[in-house]
C-alpha cells in the first residue's frame, strides 16, 4: 500500500505564496524590470498566482511567460518515454529584465539548469532568481532557490507532488512513499 501524507494544504500554499510575493518585492526593491517565468506545467500556475498577488500589492501588471524545458533536458538521450513537448510562450524581451523563474518543486536542480539555458537563448536577463513552493533537497547541481515556500526534507524513494486547483482540482502538497 502506498502511504500518502498531506504536508501542505490550500491555506498553507496561499500563505507561502503571499510571503514569497513580499520577499520578491523586498529583494528586488519593487517591481521595476521584473517579470515572472513559470516552468511547465506546475510552475506556470504558480507564476500566475504570484503575479496576482504582486499586482494586488503593488498595483502594477507584471509580464508572465511560460517556459517548456523539454528541448533543453539533459536526460532526453536517456529518457525511455519521450516527454510530451509543450509550447513555450514568452511574449516579451528578457533583455535587462529581472527574471523570477517559478517552479513547484526543487529537487536535483537539473530542470532549473535547463531552464536557465533556455532563458539565455531568449535574451540577456539582468539577473535570474528562483522561486519554488517546495525544496525537497537532493541537489545534483550547484543550484539554490532565492524564495522557498517550504523546505521539505525527503528521502529518494519518496515523491513530492504539488497538486493545484488549475490542473488537479485541489490545492495540496502530498508526500508519497513509493517504496511500499
Amino acid at each position: 500500500m502506498q502511504q500518502k501524507k498531506v504536508v501542505m494544504d490550500a491555506d498553507g500554499i496561499d500563505r507561502s505564496l503571499t510571503r514569497i510575493a513580499y520577499e520578491i518585492l523586498e529583494k528586488n526593491k519593487g517591481t521595476e524590470e521584473l517579470c515572472l517565468v513559470g516552468i511547465r506545467t506546475g510552475g506556470v500556475f504558480l507564476a500566475e498566482r504570484l503575479k496576482k498577488k504582486l499586482t494586488s500589492i503593488e498595483g502594477v501588471d507584471l509580464p508572465v511567460g511560460i517556459l517548456d524545458i523539454t528541448l533543453y533536458r539533459d536526460d532526453l538521450r536517456l529518457a525511455n518515454k519521450k516527454p510530451m513537448l509543450g509550447k513555450t510562450d514568452i511574449p516579451f524581451s528578457l533583455d535587462n529584465r529581472k527574471v523570477v523563474l517559478v517552479d513547484d518543486v526543487l529537487f536535483t536542480g537539473r530542470t532549473i539548469r535547463a531552464a536557465m539555458d533556455a532563458l539565455i537563448d531568449f535574451g540577456r536577463p539582468k539577473l535570474i532568481e528562483l522561486a519554488v513552493l517546495i525544496d525537497r533537497g537532493h541537489r545534483e547541481l550547484p543550484i539554490r532557490a532565492d524564495f522557498v515556500g517550504m523546505n521539505l526534507p525527503s528521502s529518494l524513494w519518496e515523491s513530492v507532488v504539488v497538486k493545484l486547483m488549475e490542473k488537479n482540482g485541489v490545492d495540496e502538497v502530498v508526500i508519497e512513499d513509493d517504496n511500499q
Binding site: Y72, D117, D121, G123
Partner: peptide, 13 residues
C-alpha cells in the same frame, strides 16, 4: 513553431 520565431532560433535538443 515558437522556436523559429526566437531571436536565437536554436535549441540544444
Amino acid at each position: 513553431i515558437e522556436v523559429s520565431t526566437r531571436e536565437i532560433k536554436k535549441v540544444p535538443t
